[in-house]
Design a protein around this nucleic acid. Structure first.
Lengths: 133, 133
DNA sequence: AAAATTGTACTATATGAATAGTACAAATGG
DNA sequence: CCATTTGTACTATTCATATAGTACAATTTT
């Protein structure tokens, strides 16, 4: 399989103080890169080892991130060759996005309901919302 | 201090399979009872021990819940006497509610933004949202 | 076919959260 | 005042999660 990887298409940056696990940060940044088309279908992700060395963390942490991405259908891995952005990645990423949007709305509405906010007043609350503090 | 506790004003129900920690369930149900006026200012909460026995969990778990409620200003504790709904409880509970609403909106808008959803299309998305599946 | 490169599997360690166990200290109430 | 009742403090246990260490298996590359 094509394993020529033309330089850094992806540069991951980890924040060890954020409290967010490394593997989650990796997943998120790769998803982001795909959504923003910096990564395209067929693109090869960095080797587990190379990324591990570059980020100075354990290879298994990268593997964990790649595995979760594979389960979601966003990437495809081939032992001995590498991990590649799935050909269907655009659809998957878009599906993920739709799903996330729906989940986010569902949770938000649940929270509002639990707090006794009527659905009818939600638009106004959002409209009037300003980043205070 | 007045320690006459006229029977069960409060009946806590724990769900051990929900994944939500016991002390969080307790906090939430007490807050709920206050918001819905089933608990009024000055009302005495069940003794840490009595609740522990009733719910068959460790007294420290109740204590943890009561402590968090005290930190939030929702209840007041007096060693040797008991834990009481704060006189300012209504205000505090209402403040908490407002704060929660704002936090919930803030987070929701952040999520929508991260997902590339324009603020202008949010009302439509909410309006069209149906519990699917 | 051999060597190198890739992801995988399994185990170990560290950490934090939740809960429990047990002893203590303060206030009440007769 | 003394016994009881109340919340508190400290420690231990359990459990899940995140990360690391090390050896392995599949594929590629030459």
């Amino acid at each position: 399989m094509n394993s020529t990887n033309g330089g850094k298409k992806l540069s991951i940056r980890l924040d060890g103080a954020s409290g967010v696990p490394f593997y989650r940060q990796i997943i998120q940044q790769i998803e982001q890169a795909i959504l923003s088309k910096r990564l395209l279908p067929g693109d090869r992700l960095p080797t587990i080892r190379s990324l591990a060395i570059e980020l100075k963390i354990n290879p298994n942490t990268i593997a964990k991130a790649y595995n979760e991405l594979e389960i979601r259908g966003i990437v495809v891995t081939q032992v001995g060759s590498g991990t590649y952005v799935s050909d269907k990645e655009i659809d998957m990423a878009e599906n993920e996005r739709q799903k996330k949007i729906e989940e986010s709305i569902a949770r938000f509405l649940r929270e509002m309901d639990a707090l006794g906010v009527l659905k009818s007043e939600i638009p106004r609350l959002i409209r009037e919302f300003k980043e205070e503090e």
